[in-house]
Design a protein around this nucleic acid. Structure first.
Lengths: 328, 328
DNA sequence: TGCTAGCACTATTATTATACGAGTGCTAAT
DNA sequence: ATTAGCACTCGTATAATAATAGTGCTAGCA
């Protein structure tokens, strides 16, 4: 258990280091705390002993360790209320009556990315939550048609497919069958249902059924599992801890890998969760802060991704604000 | 005018430097050319005089200048035929009968990006070439509908809009009006036509016409002018001349700015065009190689973007192959 | 007992000096 | 016209030095 003063020292160090990423010395802290630098040094080595602080070399100042940030976030951080200016910017987005909720969310996370200089992510509902609402087909020319897939949550995707010697009539028959038989099915089960429920029927009644079946099968199996919206990846380029290209490359690759991004929502806790450093699974110097939201049939995940040395208090208050405003 | 030997020297230097980005010395060249390093030095200083070579410092080897690359591309470069392996990879993409042409193009440029380690771009038809084919509306819930816009070239976009107290009937009336009155109009003129041809009519026959008019107006004015597909931006991260973050940042910002990307197709020459360094308008160390393609009603631009120190011959042959295969 | 002044010690950073080498340009000889 | 030879230049690498900002520890004080 930390003493009161140790908490103060840790908090000061974390906050100082977040402002300015250079190791913090005892002298700096002693100025704010009413005691000598020697006393601070003693507290510091106790905190280091406890694994909350680290030195970059034997005679350097201290830097928060992963556990140090953790302790700060869990116990020391005070909620920071948003500035009027920040609030105002977001409110103008939220009060745009014409935009659908999903657009409002994406737009405001763009704004947040610019305000904070961190990367933001919006994940929509997952494919097992999205039910097939209907499909539409538009003929483009003799050989190609566009298939549009719409889910109950309003997720739309389209695909241009090529067919040889298939009459529009037969396409329409198939479309009607699909709409009648498997609308309402979770998107990720559609491919299977197509095989067991639709294939046998079109096999009997539709010419060129092989080709049509294959085409639609691909439309659904290629259906993106989830709407993923990442904004401001380039913000990492202005963070000092990502000044080397290698690091940037690994982070960018991770941010583009669907698995990684989906792992963000693995834990479906509804509160705001903070994943620090290695917990982020992206890079030891990266922190992910996320929350889930739900409004009617719209649900999903918001995340803000930045350096471990992140303005935790500010980011948390942004996410709280977003969650609150989305949910009513 | 360059002598024969000067051409040989320039060609060797450019090709050597492209392989390995370190200044090329006279000794290296003299090994390949049957003459002494002193002779090569004389030729080199003639080439420097002519502005085709540069030194990084007084006693360094030579590096091609922008004009040097230009001369190489225009006069010295020999077309390099594609390796069987490269060809094979692309052919499997092209021979996929199920994919629409536009998907084949995007897929093959992904493949090319991986093979070359350069960034690739596909630009679709511009908005004044795309004609509105039809719009479709799908109601999602009480307050929101999805509007889907389809162009004659098969470009599809959708937008989720929110309406208050508007009956589905009225929406459908408006949609029918739009489809009847302004289908066939170039996308970038639709907004205007909407105002002059549709607004007066729905004003009379449709309740809540203000709201509906505004919603559709926004759907069309937000319509993306053009399909832009950039693949492999991260490839820049592994090019040695982009090892500093500042440079990467400016390049990434440029690649994300629509104006810049559109400037690629400004010149609608149908041949393969090479923009070296400052000509690329992206960065002095960047080269853009592009070509237009056309197949039936599908047209657009392909581009490969990489360091100025690019494998020009290889890239040109890739683009030739692509153009040829698309156009038949 | 807890705090602090004082001091020896340590590692980083910046600066300077030195040597090395890969390259050039020029001159004189072939 | 070509080339061997040589002085010269500049970037890179290495080592030596000093300055500095920090530490840990000890001993004395309230």
């Amino acid at each position: 258990m930390l003493t009161d003063r140790q908490c103060k020292v840790l908090k000061l160090i974390v906050e100082k280091y977040i402002k300015d990423p250079i190791p913090v010395g005892s002298k700096t802290i002693s100025k704010t705390l009413k005691c000598s630098s020697a006393t601070v040094r003693n507290e510091m080595s106790a905190l280091e002993e406890a694994g909350l602080l680290e030195k970059t070399h034997t005679s350097s100042g201290r830097v928060p360790s992963e556990e140090g940030y953790r302790y700060y976030v869990d116990n020391l951080m005070e909620p920071k209320k948003m500035t009027g200016e920040d609030m105002l910017k977001l409110q103008t987005v939220f009060h745009n009556q014409q935009l659908a909720l999903s657009d409002v969310i994406v737009k405001s996370l763009q704004v947040i990315s610019d305000m904070t200089n961190y990367t933001t992510v919006v994940l929509g509902s997952t494919s097992h939550e999205n039910l097939l609402k209907q499909i539409e087909v538009i003929p483009i020319d003799d050989v190609s048609i566009i298939v549009i897939v719409i889910t109950d949550k309003g997720h739309v995707e389209h695909k241009n497919i090529r067919l040889q010697d298939v009459s529009l009539d037969e396409v329409k028959k198939t479309v009607n069958l699909i709409n009648n038989l498997i609308a309402g099915t979770p998107i990720d089960e559609v491919s299977a249902k197509l095989e067991y429920e639709v294939k046998p029927i079109i096999g009997k009644y539709v010419k060129q059924h092989e080709q049509l079946y294959n085409a639609f099968y691909h439309v659904f199996s290629d259906f993106t599992n989830q709407e993923v919206n990442i904004v401001g990846k380039n913000k990492f380029l202005s963070q000092p801890e990502f000044s080397n290209i290698e690091k940037i490359r690994t982070v960018f690759n991770k941010l583009e890998s669907p698995e990684l991004i989906h792992s963000i929502e693995e834990d479906d806790d509804n509160n705001i969760k903070v994943y620090i450093g290695s917990e982020s699974k992206i890079d030891d110097d990266v922190t992910v802060i996320k929350t889930r939201f739900k409004n009617g049939n719209q649900e999903g995940t918001l995340a803000i991704i930045g350096p471990k040395r992140m303005e935790y208090d500010r980011v948390v208050s942004f996410l709280e604000y977003m969650k609150e405003n989305i949910e009513r």
